[in-house]
Nucleic acid binder design. Structure first.
Length: 471
RNA sequence: GACCCCAUCGUCUAGAGGCCCAGGACUCGGCCCUUUCAAGGCCGCAACCAGGGUUCGAAUCCCUGUGGGGUCACCA
């Protein structure tokens, strides 16, 4: 087989959702795996719903995931243009070729007439079948018409599917479909086939919802005289209630995951594991995925999107980044939260102590708040830990710290240990009040780390504030 | 309704006739570690849709049923 050429062909009617992103990802993965090409084509023939904003959103989503395309919008390529609305002449000439060869014909029936027939069929509870009214009428381009494919007499159509195996559909369930509208814009089945033919696509991997389109497309390829590509129909992604994933299941656009503080590595990792596996491995780098991925390891079953597991994957990825890198990734979120985290050394230290505790970048920033802004003392924590009883402890720590010029971890440990021991207290009895004083809450990274990051001056200041509160 | 596809723990999955009274991961529960919270370690709960075949032997192959999903446009 020639080098694989794959494509992702979204219609720009909205943002890039999770399902589309996975389709794009798997196509990209296999193209990179095989050294083939990945083409991005925009199927904007639905003028009602297509928007430039959606095109931008889709490209943005793909870029965030790191899915670069070899041919397509903005990068061009030898088989362009890559927007269907810029390829109308092409569809027209292919349609005319089919008419000339007798494989298609002009149909002059009005939409109203057909709608009526469709209603009648529905009322009679039978499948609507185009009666073939115009099948043998002469071609008169001057009359308003659509182009219909003349269905060849076939018993059945069979094609290979890399994930589902051979699929057969009886010819009796097919009919003369409209392939070009009256306004000259092609319908999906025709546009996609003409484009896949002219863009030399030989492996079509797309959503499961297209399986039923495939038979007619196979016939179209044959009518056009081109080899039929191999197909890979990817199972749908479902929500928790096992229905197709949609907005009501929560966030469905990839960029919303970016905005919620997920890493692209984790998103890619999770998405690919939804329906694909490689033994027992859960975490994959992009390089590993490129190396291991193939369509025949993709399961044939639809899979339920599990936010908990995605969160775990993200957490795992966050832990694997270097603190400096993690801090850098979090920087936009710090800025969005209005926290001054531009000091790289401090930001890195914060990331280091928080990376095991924060599951997303947004979570990390939320947990880091008191490092960059005054501590907001939780009332319950104050009532419990900043009391007349703990005040002497706070004062002792304050005094010890004040007499140390530049405390290090060992000195802090000694200070806390001695303070606890001399008063016959467990270490926790000393650490908790200090924790509340410095962070405002009862849960935080190790208290010595907190002090070291806050610095001596700021720590003394917060201790003073807390001692006042404990009065 | 017709046609197509699918069917292992709650979820993602391993499993391509004996290695499986079914393995890993998420979630959940317990224990350990521990200055809090995490992280980490250990342990546990939990599944082959049903019924028929084929076979010495079936989660794995075949058939039927059931359940779920998808498609039936001058949308994609």
């Amino acid at each position: 087989m020639d080098k694989p050429r794959l494509r992702f062909a979204p219609s720009p009617t909205g943002y890039l959702h999770i399902g589309g992103a996975r389709t794009a990802l798997l196509n990209w993965l296999f193209a990179r795996h095989s050294g083939g090409a990945f083409v991005l084509r925009i199927e904007d023939t639905d003028r009602e719903r297509s928007t430039q904003a959606a095109v931008d959103a889709i490209l943005e989503g793909m870029r965030w995931l790191g899915l670069d395309w070899d041919e397509g919008p903005e990068v061009g390529g030898a088989h362009g243009p890559y927007f269907q609305m810029q390829r109308l002449d092409l569809y027209q000439s292919y349609a005319e070729e089919l008419i000339r060869k007798g494989r298609a014909y002009a149909c002059y029936c009005s939409k109203e007439e057909l709608d009526l027939l469709r209603e009648q069929a529905k009322a009679a509870k039978v499948q609507f079948v185009y009666p073939g009214t115009c099948r043998d009428k002469p071609y008169d381009p001057s009359r308003r018409h659509v182009v219909r494919f003349r269905l060849p007499k076939v018993l059945e159509v069979t094609f290979t599917d890399l994930v589902k195996g051979p699929i057969t559909r009886p010819g009796s369930t097919l009919q003369d479909e409209v392939i070009v509208r009256a306004d000259g814009v092609p319908l999906y089945n025709f546009g996609a086939v003409v484009d896949d033919v002219t863009m030399k696509i030989n492996l079509v991997a797309r959503g499961d919802d297209h399986v039923n389109n495939t038979a007619i497309q196979v016939l179209l390829y044959e009518a056009l005289g081109y080899p039929v590509p191999t197909f890979a129909h990817l199972p749908m992604i479902l929500g928790a209630d096992k229905t197709r994933l949609s907005k009501r299941h929560g966030a469905t656009s990839v960029t919303s995951y970016r905005d919620m503080g997920y890493l692209p590595e984790a998103t890619v990792n999770y998405l690919v594991r939804l329906g694909w596996s490689h033994g027992d491995q859960e975490i994959f780098t992009r390089e590993e995925l490129v190396k291991f991925f193939s369509f025949d390891q993709v399961g044939a079953t639809a899979s339920v999107f599990n936010p908990d597991k995605m969160l775990w994957v993200n957490h795992t990825w966050m832990k694997s980044l270097t603190p400096a890198e993690l801090g850098l990734r979090a920087l936009p979120f710090f800025r969005a939260a209005g926290l001054p985290a531009d000091d790289e050394a401090k930001r890195t230290s914060v990331a280091r102590v928080l990376q095991e505790r924060a599951k997303t970048l947004v979570d990390l920033v939320a947990q880091a708040r008191y490092f960059f802004a005054p501590a907001e003392i939780d009332p319950q924590a104050r009532d419990k830990f900043l009391t007349g009883e703990t005040r002497p402890v706070l004062e002792a720590i304050r005094a010890g710290l004040a007499s140390t010029a530049a405390p290090d971890a060992a000195q802090l440990e000694a200070l806390f240990g001695d303070t606890a021991r001399s008063r016959g207290l467990a270490l926790g009895k000393v650490a908790q009040p200090v924790r509340v004083a410095l962070t405002g809450g009862t849960a935080s990274p190790g208290i010595y780390d907190v002090i070291l990051i806050l610095g001596r001056e700021e720590t003394l200041k917060r201790l003073d504030d807390a001692i006042r509160l404990a009065a």
